[in-house]
Write a protein that binds this DNA or RNA. Structure first.
Lengths: 212, 212
DNA sequence: TAGTCAAATTTTGCATTCAAAAATGCCTCC
DNA sequence: GGAGGCATTTTTGAATGCAAAATTTGACTA
């Protein structure tokens, strides 16, 4: 198995699941489940520690990072900036095919909203935001976004959506698609900021934090 | 020696010097000079590879990353976004002491400009930008900025400055300080973007790139 | 003399091993 | 019966060893 693959799989284990924040990372178990020795696993742990998903306690092993209230605030602030930048860059660069793809995602997202299917809604939502970042055609930006989004994801996912917020989010997404289609960079950046800020308030209001 | 220390020292070796971009990274030599074995060095290499300072070629070792024309463009685009975000966040948060510090840095930077001391000028310039990022009081943002700035630095440093550009840069810095003092977040973000965009054009026009 | 192919050497990536540090459990003593 | 301390076990972090891959070397051929 290749190095990047170990990092990806470990990241997946940490973000999508199994290991709760703050929990010890069972080195031996993961070695067994990945069928590798400790050396490549530890290399991956250091990389994810640099990304902020893992905290290394000297001589006391590694744990899945906890998100404090402050972390959530900082991550959202940066995410806002990154998405706004992505939007501005995407407007002049996005292809018709990419626009169509986003429009389709938007349509199915609205479907899921109508069906009140929160999980599918979130999946579409995520894909749309990722598509915008991809349309910005900037690998450095995409890398940072991926890293921030991965850390935010858990916080976002467990947030229950009030009906009003949900309706508002849908409206904002219409405006996002609209701005993209009009190639209105400034406008798109502004809407994305507003959208993210609202999301953040929602998360913060839900009192989300993992202690420390 | 601690893990983070190895990463720092290796980063320093790569950014501030000794190993030219594209050159092979001499694993054995560095192990000797750091007085560590290959394992911790390789861990540090993976971390810096994730940061983009090192490229790992499977079964062919690691090399100091080269900056292509495209990399420079992408890094500046992201840097613009990060600094603009930092400026917006810094305005409501910056303390009087921090403002004073930046004003002093600005004064000595102008001094160095008058003395046509390019290196000292660049040092002050860098310290000002770092101070603004610090004033934003966001560790995630600061981390990303540090990473982007480290990669850009070489490109920026070797750029010779035309007299007009230099004068303009000074003017822009006056405007930056002004906006900070007025706590004009939008204005500051805008000036920072303009400032960075100009810098980037300058670097690109100087035809800077390390091939590939 | 230049080119090509194969052997030898080096380098890489990973597993294993080893010493030191932390955690655990057991025993004693209060 | 519980707290404290010592020994044992486990875990961590790093060095070493080993097999596979790549590069270099050198000899042979055209």
């Amino acid at each position: 198995m290749m190095h990047d693959e170990v990092v990806s799989r470990l990241r997946h284990v940490l973000t999508e699941g199994e290991i709760p924040p703050g929990a010890r990372i069972p080195e031996r178990e993961l070695c067994a489940s990945f069928a590798i020795s400790r050396t490549p696993l530890r290399e991956a742990l250091k990389v994810l520690a640099a990304e902020g998903l893992v905290v290394l306690l000297p001589n006391r092993g590694s744990r899945a990072a906890k998100l404090t209230q402050r972390d959530v605030k900082e991550l959202f602030e940066v995410c806002e900036g990154l998405e706004a930048t992505a939007g501005e860059l995407a407007c002049p660069r996005i292809s018709d095919a990419q626009l169509r793809e986003i429009a389709e995602l938007q349509a199915s997202m609205v479907e899921h909203y109508r069906a009140q299917d929160l999980l599918s809604y979130y999946r579409c939502n995520r894909l749309i935001h990722e598509a915008i970042v991809r349309a910005a055609d900037n690998a450095v930006l995409a890398g940072f976004y991926e890293s921030v989004a991965a850390r935010i994801r858990r916080a976002r996912f467990i947030t229950p959506m009030s009906p009003e917020h949900w309706a508002l989010a849908i409206q904002e997404h219409e405006a996002i698609l609209n701005a993209l289609q009009r190639r209105d960079a400034r406008g798109l950046a502004h809407i994305l900021r507003t959208h993210l800020r609202r999301k953040r308030e929602e998360v913060v209001r839900a009192g989300f934090a993992e202690g420390e």
